[in-house]
């Protein structure tokens, strides 16, 4: 890619030397006499923007103006005005928007984190309507294959699903991404989005059974994964009683605690359960007892207090949080 842009730079003819621009007088940026945040513009960028201002202020709706906006966007994609003007041009020149999509795709290689690019992409997709669906899903997939947590790509994808559809394979797609990286919080978030909003899956209640199984598996593989634990809790949103009484939740906690490694989230989940009314069995007491080290005071009859003490010890950066949790425990009966 570096090679390509070098070639392009070498081949680039300054606008002032291009015959098709000879009739235009460039307009320089007015930064005021003594700028607050003074800026040194590169020569090339200044020239393109000077010509851009000339066509923009003259409201010149021409194809040379359209290619000029492409040059300006290539040099600085953050300028809202250039994008605005480009859309006006696309509309008035009745440009084939399939081509515009290719332009966006080329730009996305270097500036995929640019807000304007994604807004522009959405504008194009909106204009094309339902026929755009698969291309949009593929486009975001391509970006996510490079950066699986790409916030803009995920936002765009959610918009496509909700506006144009294409939910059918989305859960499978989430599975694929989580198989690649089970720690990918964006993929977990998308999974939650799908099971709660897809018109084909029947909603959270219908999905809970199979999702709990899936998540418990994920937790057992990597118990240090914040995302899978939060997802498990999310499966019981507004269903505290179900959460407390689901033996799969307490069992996975116990299983992790018994391994005596990476048990921080298992311990904090158990603490949540107890605070919500769960009565831990003897097995839990033994598992917790086994986690105590000689650093602790004598055995505390209150298992929740012991859990907080262990967490204070193993998660020292958040010691104040665990101390606070200790002050909020249910009273022993």
């Amino acid at each position: 890619m570096a090679e390509k842009s070098e070639v392009e730079e070498d081949d680039r003819v300054p606008l002032r030397l291009r015959p098709e621009w000879s009739d235009v007088t460039p307009i320089p940026q007015d930064d005021g006499p003594n700028p607050v945040v003074p800026i040194n513009y590169s020569e090339e960028f200044s020239e393109v923007m000077d010509y851009f201002r000339a066509v923009y202020f003259a409201n010149e709706l021409s194809s040379r103006a359209l290619s000029l906006t492409a040059e300006a966007i290539t040099l600085n994609a953050g300028n809202y005005t250039v994008w605005h003007f480009r859309r006006l041009l696309l509309e008035s020149l009745k440009v084939d928007l399939h081509e515009e999509r290719e332009f966006v795709e080329r730009m996305a290689i270097s500036i995929s984190k640019n807000y304007q690019l994604w807004h522009h992409r959405r504008w194009v997709a909106e204009k094309l309507g339902l026929e755009a669906r698969n291309d949009e899903l593929e486009f975001t997939k391509k970006i996510l294959s490079i950066d699986a947590k790409h916030y803009h790509a995920w936002s765009h994808r959610k918009w496509v699903l909700q506006t144009l559809g294409g939910w059918e394979n989305e859960l499978t797609y989430c599975c694929e991404l989580l198989e690649e990286d089970i720690f990918n919080n964006s993929a977990w978030n998308q999974r939650y989005f799908v099971i709660t909003r897809s018109p084909f899956l029947g909603g959270l209640k219908a999905m809970r059974e199979s999702e709990v199984l899936y998540t418990v598996e994920a937790i057992i593989s990597y118990p240090e994964n914040e995302s899978s634990w939060r997802y498990l809790r999310g499966l019981f949103k507004d269903e505290t009683t179900l959460y407390v009484n689901d033996t799969r939740v307490s069992s996975v906690c116990l299983k992790i605690l018994k391994t005596k490694s990476n048990y921080l989230f298992a311990l904090s989940t158990l603490l949540d359960l107890i605070c919500l009314g769960y009565q831990p069995s003897e097995d839990f007491r033994h598992a917790i007892e086994a986690l105590r080290t000689s650093d602790f005071d004598k055995q505390d009859p209150d298992i929740a207090r012991t859990i907080c003490s262990i967490l204070e010890h193993v998660d020292p950066i958040r010691v104040n949080y665990w101390v606070w949790r200790k002050t909020r425990l249910p009273q022993l009966a």
Binding site: Y41, S42, N76
Partner: peptide, 13 residues
């Protein structure tokens, strides 16, 4: 003289 910073700053001065 960092031209990259100055270019990206132009529009969000």
């Amino acid at each position: 003289k960092d031209s990259f910073e100055s270019v990206v700053m132009e529009h969000l001065r």
